[in-house]
Design a protein around this nucleic acid. Structure first.
Lengths: 159, 159
DNA sequence: CCCAGATAGCTGTATCGTACAGGTAAATCA
DNA sequence: TGATTTACCTGTACGATACAGCTATCTGGG
């Protein structure tokens, strides 16, 4: 990459460009990995379902709109995801006692179990991928990714 | 399922779990950001088109199969992406002089210009998001993401 | 108390990215 | 040269998503 861009210390521009590149690449690779890994056996839980179950697990039962807002998804999308999850017995819908329009979505034991299995498989996968890394580097990666996500999230919220 | 995995220290398991979580989150946020950012003005170039143009830019003109292999995509997918790019004047197809079955895909000036614009916008976005970060931290993030991608890629290739 | 608006969720429809199966034409090899 | 492989395209299907429009319910000002 040449120094196309003037502003700020050139070095910083370069670094930002690298980050942009690497994030784009990671998204592509992550998708490919998920596709390759999932197709085989745990086709059981596609990406959307997994994030919904994770969120329900960590944030507790909640209704569709809340879920949609948290996940940055349209309500209709979540409605459909949730329907599929219910069909598969992974979540339950109960009428919201406090609001006749709402339904509260909660994970079923089967759903939690399924989610945990996928999570464990993914964690194992990362263990495999990062086998050669030092604990320190892993720690730093986790930390920086966390901060990156925080930054992305607060920026998304701000607009 | 505690230390199913032996090798190491519970702490390491925890770190792997965090990495798994953060990567999943990043993919979701990245999608959301792209959607939010892109819709407004540079709806000009969706994700798939962008990665294709980037690849053509960095790796030079090449035919559909090569491109598909590099991008971990099915040939038919790339065929269609390329058709759309051609329709929009962003790439050109020329018959492969060395192989009558093949077509060589190359970016047009318009395509490169468009790609550079999107790339610059994204880089600017990261500059914005990471405004509060020290150059050192940015550098480390870029470096670790690069190593993570390398690891993911070689793992994908290996199977 | 009632109605006007807001909100929760669902359904219809559309788009995008992707895969797989099957076709045709060109290349290659035994 | 004929069988096989390769490169690409087309048909079809699916998953994830958005937006628009619908119904049922809630809520706040008269």
């Amino acid at each position: 990459m040449r120094d196309d861009h003037t502003t700020g210390t050139a070095q910083d521009e370069v670094t930002l460009g690298r980050i942009e590149t690497e994030v784009a690449l990671l998204m592509r690779l992550g998708e490919a990995t998920r596709r390759a890994t999932g197709t085989a056996e745990h086709r059981v839980l596609d990406r959307a379902a997994y994030v919904i179950l994770r969120h329900l697990d960590s944030a507790g039962p909640q209704n569709v709109s809340t879920l949609a807002a948290k996940l940055n998804l349209d309500g209709s999308t979540v409605t459909r995801q949730v329907s599929a999850l219910q069909r598969d017995g992974l979540i339950a819908r109960t009428p919201d006692p406090a609001d006749g329009r709402g339904t509260v979505i909660s994970p079923t034991p089967a759903g939690l179990q399924r989610m945990a299995a996928v999570q464990a498989a993914r964690t194992r996968l990362y263990g495999d991928i990062l086998a050669a890394w030092s604990p320190d580097d892993r720690e730093t990666l986790a930390e920086l990714l966390h901060r990156l996500n925080d930054a992305l999230e607060s920026r998304n919220r701000r607009r």
